[in-house]
Design a protein around this nucleic acid. Structure first.
Lengths: 189, 189
DNA sequence: GGACGCATGTAATAGGTTACATGATTAC
DNA sequence: GTAATCATGTAACCTATTACATGCGTCC
């Protein structure tokens, strides 16, 4: 049985919902508003080849009149089965990494005013992300309200990861505010 | 001016508080209860050499009677200055990665009961982490209450990162509970 | 003609994990 | 003696980022 990388499962997970091209996958997985995984096209194209060789994906060339042709990938039955097994298999809690927190750890060396500015900048970033997630959630409720209660629906899964994103960003913003206020009140005194 | 990697800053950040050996650093940065960064000894020892070559660290050999000798590293003034500048320099928000969330994204394919078990297991893990953080916080308040209000104190910085850890884990636990309950109520019906 | 978005790839490098290796000292 | 902790290192491998590279089609 062929090994499948985490990135592989990320791609299979998206293709299980709808067939997509490498470019489509790259757009969804690139920096913007993905949730808890990301990848660049330079990692995606070779991975699609590997998965195809392992007979986990099929692809068909789709000719387009208005833009370049593309390859649209779809799951095989084997892949869907592998994905289903993986989805509930035990996994270690991720070792989180956040460079901002590393900076905060050494921030006592620096000017509190400069520190507060950095934290305020991140507060704004996470607030923007939170607003985007909220808009996404409103959209989900508006168009797929019925499916959101069914754990067998992909919309439910989308909602579940989105809720985690909402909680994550809301907590991050609250923490930024607390920290920035602490730093600012120290400055004013 | 020599480039310093993020890992380098992690090591400098710890050494700015107290001189430590590679082994000490590895213990603090290894899997256990670090907060938002981790590394293995195989990454740490070579990095200590690099930082030493760049004259950012000094080390002295410390002979021990009861156990093997060790090298204890300390910051140079240049390193402390570099660390201080880095601490408030702009940084992009981290692209978060969490394999559990990736699984949740494809969980609609699987048996909701199996899914609920996986989520409950993570709930327990994050609860345990939360308890550990709470104990750490109580300890901080008991022994360093005065310094916790001073942004120029390393104890304040420790508290700030710890608070982020507390918020993160509390939110994670709450989300696990919500999701597990949703999955379980679907099963019982 | 040039910029931009679509579309697909490869190569070089950096960052990180796992495994391999060695040796001292203490406790059982 | 042998397992466990302290202590330091290297090598092989995998993952991920950045940069290089190409080409089509549309809009200005």
């Amino acid at each position: 049985m062929t090994e499948i990388s985490t990135l592989g499962y990320a791609l299979l997970g998206m293709l299980a919902r709808e067939p997509l091209s490498g470019y489509d996958l790259a757009q969804r997985l690139d920096l913007p508003v993905g949730q808890f995984w990301h990848a660049r096209h330079s990692q995606i194209y070779p991975e699609l080849k590997r998965l195809s060789r392992a007979r986990l994906l099929t692809h068909e060339k789709v000719a387009q009149h208005d833009r370049p042709d593309k390859k649209v990938y779809a799951l095989t039955d084997r892949a869907r089965e592998r994905l289903r097994e993986w989805a509930t298999a035990p996994v270690e809690a991720a070792g989180k990494r956040d460079e901002l927190l590393l900076k905060v750890y050494s921030m006592w060396l620096a000017d509190p005013e400069a520190a507060a500015r950095l934290i305020r900048a991140h507060e704004a970033q996470h607030e923007a992300q939170l607003r985007a997630y909220r808009a996404h959630e409103a959209n989900l409720h508006a168009h797929h309200a019925a499916q959101l209660r069914d754990p067998r629906s992909p919309w439910f899964a989308t909602w579940a990861t989105l809720k985690r994103g909402l909680g994550y960003e809301a907590e991050y913003v609250a923490w930024c505010r607390w920290l920035a206020e602490s730093l600012e009140s120290a400055t004013s005194r």
